[in-house]
Computed example of a mutant assay.
Amino acid sequence: MTPATSLFTPVEADLRLLADNLIQLVGTDHPILYAAAKHLFGAGGKRIRPAIVLLVSRATMSEDITTRHRRLAEITEMIHTASLVHDDVVDESNERRGVPTIHSLFGNRVAVLAGDFFFAQSSWHLANLDNLEVVKLLSQVLMDFAVGEIQQGLNRFDASITIDTYLQKNYYKTATLFANSAKAAAVLSEVSAETAERLYCYGRDIGLAFQIVDDILDFTSSSEALGKPAGSDLKSGTLTAPVLYALEEKPALFMLIEREFAQSGDLEQALALISDSQGIARARELAAHHAKLAVEHLVDLPYSESRQALINMTDFALSRLY
């Protein structure tokens, strides 16, 4: 198992700068928003997305990375954080990774406005990169997030959705930021269009792998490790890969899902059926498939410590299952 911290060795100093800059980007003009930013950005987290931006930047530059590469990494983390603030409001989550959510501390109104503010701040800093292609790439992410959230809402408790529909939703909600920010970093490095596209594909597939693993952990990890109740996605009607695969084996699951676990013991029965199926094992195979594809997109990139770290990132994504 590769710990996340060792993966980041080539960009460790870059990430320290990023952590210092994030809160400053928000500014002190709005005390509540500043307090929210300090709480969010001070909570740490793995910083996977900005790390990938910085690793792609270093893997595609023969010289040192630029201030625009660094700012792109900061924008990426700000967009990700803004999306989490809104997700927690929609999901009515009081904790994330054991830390109180913004809406549980400040209320829904402030949480929604804080998320909006972070999105607006990221857009402003994005425009100041003065690169239209990069602006388009990250603006697409903002649109995709909204589409993904709507799609997830419309598909609640819909046991007829396909794995393809599930993966499309995962792209909109998660992988789009990995994909488009990786490509944006490559664009800032002025690589060929083909190389930029391959890095987009790397981001897409590693983003899908990360999300599938998260969806598996919702069934296999403890509530303490998750920072939220285990099985909470299923309870809310979000049907993920383990459920969709289990449905192919366990017809009894359909009835439980269709009545939205309305009767006492329904959720526990559903969890037992999923555990007794090949759903989780097949979901692991799906995650491994996308991790393998991600590595294949890097084969033409010249060897460097950063390229190797991007490859190792795929192992880390899967290692969280064991």
Rank of each mutant, 00 (worst) to 15 (best):
205 D>F: 11
291 A>Y: 01
235 K>E: 13
22 L>K: 06
290 H>R: 03
285 E>P: 01
210 F>N: 07
33 L>G: 01
95 E>C: 09
164 D>A: 15
44 G>H: 08
122 S>N: 06
71 R>Q: 13
161 I>V: 10
320 R>Y: 07
292 K>F: 06
259 R>G: 13
99 V>S: 13
97 R>V: 09
297 H>G: 06
28 T>I: 03
18 L>Q: 04
4 A>D: 00
76 T>K: 01
109 R>Y: 08
203 G>M: 08
157 F>A: 05
193 A>L: 11
297 H>D: 06
266 D>Y: 01
151 Q>Y: 10
285 E>V: 12
191 V>F: 09
26 V>Y: 13
123 S>Y: 12
27 G>I: 00
75 I>G: 10
308 Q>W: 14
261 F>K: 02
193 A>I: 15
22 L>E: 08
288 A>M: 07
69 H>F: 00
54 L>F: 11
158 D>F: 07
82 A>P: 03
148 G>C: 08
48 I>Y: 01
54 L>S: 12
264 S>Q: 13
180 N>W: 05
15 L>Y: 01
233 D>P: 03
216 I>F: 11
21 N>D: 13
41 F>P: 04
55 L>T: 14
33 L>E: 03
72 L>N: 10
92 E>S: 15
55 L>I: 14
190 E>Q: 15
186 A>R: 06
313 M>S: 11
209 A>V: 03
293 L>T: 10
223 S>Q: 07
96 R>L: 10
158 D>Y: 09
24 Q>R: 15
227 G>E: 12
229 P>H: 02
166 Y>M: 15
2 T>L: 14
35 A>N: 11
133 E>V: 12
50 P>K: 08
154 L>T: 14
135 V>G: 04
206 I>N: 08
44 G>C: 05
111 A>F: 01
109 R>P: 03
99 V>Y: 05
244 L>C: 05
211 Q>D: 08
158 D>C: 09
238 T>V: 12
186 A>T: 14
169 K>L: 13
59 A>S: 15
16 R>W: 00
280 I>V: 12
68 R>S: 13
66 T>H: 02
26 V>S: 04
286 L>R: 00
287 A>P: 08
18 L>M: 04
228 K>N: 09
318 L>K: 03
202 Y>T: 06
154 L>H: 12
207 G>L: 10
261 F>S: 03
184 A>H: 10
227 G>F: 12
